[in-house]
Simulated assay, not measured.
Amino acid sequence: MLIALVAAATERIRVGSGAVQTGHVTAPVLVEQFGTIDALHPGRVDLGLGRSGHRKSQFAELAAGVSKPEARTEARTVDGLLIPPPADFSRIAGSPTLRLYTALLQQQGAEAPEFAELVDEITALIEGTFKLSDGTEAHIVPGEDAELQLWILGSSGGESARVAGERGLPFAANYHVAPSAVLEAVEAYREAFKPSAALPAPHVMVSADVVVAPDDETARRIASPYALWVLSVRDGRGAIPFPTEEDAAAHVWTDEDRALVADRVDTQFVGSPQTVADRLRTLQRVTGADELLVTTIVHDHTDRLRSFELLAEEWNTPQ
């Protein structure tokens, strides 16, 4: 709904998802929804697909103690880019909130198809080539022949990166949420890549969480509530309304809580326009990114807009 509203309020910019949680939706519904938006705003809609919703069994195993979280290692720096140790999600795996969300988002007894199969179904429905094994065809209108650009979002070097590469689709690597695996993700994608009609060579987007202000000190102050918000996401409560700076200053942190959010906080790019732009260029260089996606999460929307304005001005200044 938000994509459609933004598309209706704009004329030139591309709009899209980053990404649809495909474990909670069927291919025909997804193609029809995005096909409808494309019919109204042709040629500028991106359909980003993510594997979220397909991994219930992994969280169940963590909660039961069957599967162990990836062993923590020391942070490392690769050519100036911080690669933190992976986060331990065993704390959230057994939370009542996660069980509730899982129950609400998927119909009882429903099983999500394999991610690769779903991507192939979506592609075939858009291209108008979908057939069952007995030759029965399916046609989704609107949706068929829509000018949608397909993307795959991935947080590791696993199935999402492989599927994106093998299908010759552009790939978005998730540094701002899963920074520990960004290099493995882009490497796995490039290794699996096969040229397609849509894409003759690998194309990588890498995300980063940024907060820009006129100076480093102001940026750090504005960004200070971020850690508390991430903690709420990861400790099993579910995301709280974004805290104020006063909320952040009043919070009493434990060592366990700090460890739970360290990878996200340490890889947030916070500072003056030059500080953040320099770190983004490092991210681009080390990952070989063709595009960067930046997101800014702060309490005051005016600060968010100003952050984007300052970064755009600095990024477009000749070096």
Results as ranks from 00 to 15, higher is better:
307 S>R: 07
299 H>N: 11
249 A>D: 10
229 W>I: 13
303 D>R: 01
303 D>H: 02
272 S>K: 11
287 T>K: 11
231 L>T: 12
310 L>Q: 07
209 D>S: 09
210 V>F: 05
203 H>L: 07
281 R>N: 13
227 A>L: 12
295 T>R: 02
206 V>H: 09
258 R>F: 13
268 Q>A: 00
221 R>H: 15
260 L>V: 14
244 T>H: 00
265 V>P: 00
217 E>C: 05
259 A>N: 12
259 A>L: 14
208 A>Q: 10
221 R>M: 13
209 D>N: 13
290 D>M: 05
209 D>L: 03
308 F>P: 02
204 V>S: 09
279 R>I: 00
281 R>C: 02
236 G>L: 05
215 D>N: 14
288 G>R: 09
224 S>G: 13
207 S>R: 13
252 V>I: 09
211 V>Q: 06
216 D>T: 06
252 V>T: 07
200 P>G: 01
264 R>S: 15
212 V>G: 04
226 Y>G: 05
297 I>M: 05
272 S>P: 04
296 T>Y: 01
229 W>P: 10
286 V>F: 00
255 D>W: 14
217 E>I: 02
206 V>Q: 04
308 F>H: 07
254 T>Q: 14
238 G>V: 07
217 E>T: 11
253 W>M: 10
307 S>P: 02
221 R>N: 15
215 D>L: 08
287 T>F: 05
280 L>E: 00
298 V>C: 03
250 A>W: 08
273 P>D: 03
266 D>H: 09
304 R>D: 01
268 Q>C: 06
232 S>C: 14
247 D>A: 12
230 V>I: 11
249 A>F: 09
234 R>S: 14
202 P>E: 04
260 L>D: 12
308 F>G: 03
208 A>C: 01
283 L>D: 01
299 H>R: 06
237 R>L: 15
254 T>S: 15
250 A>Q: 11
282 T>Q: 10
226 Y>K: 12
219 A>H: 08
223 A>K: 12
203 H>Y: 08
309 E>H: 08
273 P>V: 03
232 S>W: 11
239 A>N: 12
285 R>W: 03
266 D>R: 13
262 A>S: 09
280 L>S: 02
245 E>T: 13
275 T>D: 04
301 H>C: 04
226 Y>H: 15
279 R>A: 03
291 E>W: 01
282 T>K: 07
229 W>S: 08
205 M>A: 14
248 A>H: 11
211 V>W: 02
201 A>Y: 12
237 R>T: 15
247 D>S: 09
